[in-house]
């Protein structure tokens, strides 16, 4: 028996928003520690890694390890039926071919259940190597979303360049070019608005705008985002989900032909 209950459905709704444009289907691997999801987009350019820890749920029970293969567009349709303040419970029997979502209104006067067919997904799992990154940049997630959106107007790629002076995002194309430079913040009133850079070595890498924009669908999960870069390896874009886990996106760089 697997059962996981969240007092607020909004976390799960936001998680789905954060992955459903990038992935069509994914396996939720559930064990004692919580729920893990790892999947690549169809083009294998990016990889999503989601962790929801058991202790972040209001109730969590997983008697046997279970993999729930879900069609994310169907799951998203179902989660849209939950009110933000509803409690959500995901349930599946051992060896089940369906998963059930139960939504309860705060006053318990409305209880809905939705059963969804599971899919048998034979998806490739990748080992993500432990990496010491040359640069990590922490900034407001809303600011990062705005930068990606603004620069997307100029070209298909964004160059991210991190030095000890700061981080610079650039794009160029038919209409011209754009550069956004952020300096490390000296002092701020709100911690989540700070720009914090840790740099061992300067790094410049180029990434596809389209994917960065997909990642920013996770903005509402966290006030801050962390970018980790090293030369010639995928960028990591991490959103920490308060009290329960994180979502990490890995994006393969573009290289000179």
């Amino acid at each position: 028996m697997f059962e996981a209950r969240l007092l607020r459905s909004s976390i799960l709704k936001k998680v789905l928003e954060a992955i459903k444009d990038l992935l069509t289907q994914a396996t939720f691997d559930c064990d004692d520690n919580g729920i893990q999801l790892q999947a690549m987009d169809n083009s294998h350019v990016s990889l999503v890694s989601l962790t929801l820890r058991a202790d972040g749920f209001d109730k969590y029970r997983c008697d046997r390890n279970i993999s729930l293969g879900m069609n994310l567009s169907s799951m998203s349709k179902i989660l849209k039926c939950a009110g933000d303040k509803d409690t959500v419970t995901m349930k599946a029997q051992d060896n089940a071919d369906t998963v059930t979502f139960v939504f309860e209104s705060p006053n318990q006067e409305k209880v809905s259940d939705y059963e969804m067919k599971l899919m048998n997904l034979d998806l490739e799992h990748l080992g993500i190597p432990e990496t010491e990154y040359s640069c990590t940049i922490r900034l407001s997630s809303a600011e990062f979303a705005r930068i990606c959106r603004d620069l997307s107007q100029f070209g298909e790629s964004i160059v991210i360049s991190c030095t000890k002076e700061g981080v610079r995002f650039s794009a160029s194309g038919d209409i011209g070019s754009a550069n956004i430079a952020l300096a490390q913040t000296a002092s701020v009133d709100k911690e989540e608005e700070a720009v914090v850079i840790e740099m061992e070595e300067p790094v410049t890498l180029t990434f596809a705008c389209q994917y960065l924009n997909y990642f920013t669908k996770a903005t509402s999960l966290s006030p801050q985002v962390q970018l980790s870069m090293s030369a010639d390896v995928p960028l990591v874009v991490e959103y920490r989900i308060p009290d329960i886990g994180h979502i990490r996106y890995y994006l393969a760089p573009k290289i000179d032909d």
Partner: peptide, 13 residues
């Protein structure tokens, strides 16, 4: 520029 893929960097488990 050419787009690389994730599988170039991370191996199958």
């Amino acid at each position: 520029m050419a787009q690389t893929t994730i599988t170039t960097f991370f191996n199958s488990r």
